[in-house]
C-alpha cells in the first residue's frame, strides 16, 4: 500500500466543486471586501433552513444538488442561485412538488 506518488492531482477525475488545491486558482486574488446579502439570498437561506428542520431535505441533499449543476453553470451562478436550483431539484426528486405544479407556478409568476 504505497502512498500515492506525487502526481499532479488534476490527472485523476475530480468533481468540479472539490476545489482544494486546484491550480487554476493559485494566482487568483481573494475578494476580501464585505458583500451584503440580498433579500433573495436571505429568503433562499431561510427556505433551506426550514426544509432542513422539517426533515424535508438534508444538508447533504442540498450539496448533492449543487454538485450536480454542470461545471460551467456552477461557476456562473451565485452562491444562493446554486442553492435555489438544488432545492428545486430535491423537492422534485422527493416528490414534494411535481414538475407540472412547478411549471404551472412558474408560468403564473
Amino acid at each position: 500500500m504505497p502512498e500515492k506518488p506525487s502526481t499532479e492531482p488534476e490527472e485523476l477525475p475530480r468533481a468540479h466543486h472539490d476545489l482544494g488545491g486546484v491550480a487554476k486558482y493559485a494566482c487568483q486574488p481573494v475578494d476580501t471586501e464585505p458583500h451584503a446579502l440580498t433579500d433573495f439570498d436571505k429568503q433562499v437561506d431561510a427556505v433551506r433552513s426550514i426544509l432542513g428542520a422539517k426533515k424535508v431535505m438534508s444538508v447533504d441533499e442540498l450539496r448533492r444538488g449543487i454538485e450536480a449543476i454542470p461545471e460551467e453553470t456552477y461557476h456562473r451562478l451565485s452562491y444562493y442561485q446554486r442553492w435555489i436550483r438544488s432545492i428545486a431539484d430535491n423537492l422534485l426528486r422527493r416528490g414534494v412538488v411535481s414538475e407540472e405544479e412547478l411549471r404551472a407556478e412558474l408560468e403564473r409568476g
Partner: peptide, 27 residues
Amino acid sequence: MAGVIEADSERLLVAIESLLAKKGLAS
C-alpha cells in the same frame, strides 16, 4: 427535470415559496 430547474433563480424562488406555502411546509 433539468429544464424546469433551469428557470431564472428569482422566479424559481417565488414559485417554490408559493408551493411550499400551499402545502403547509413554509409560510
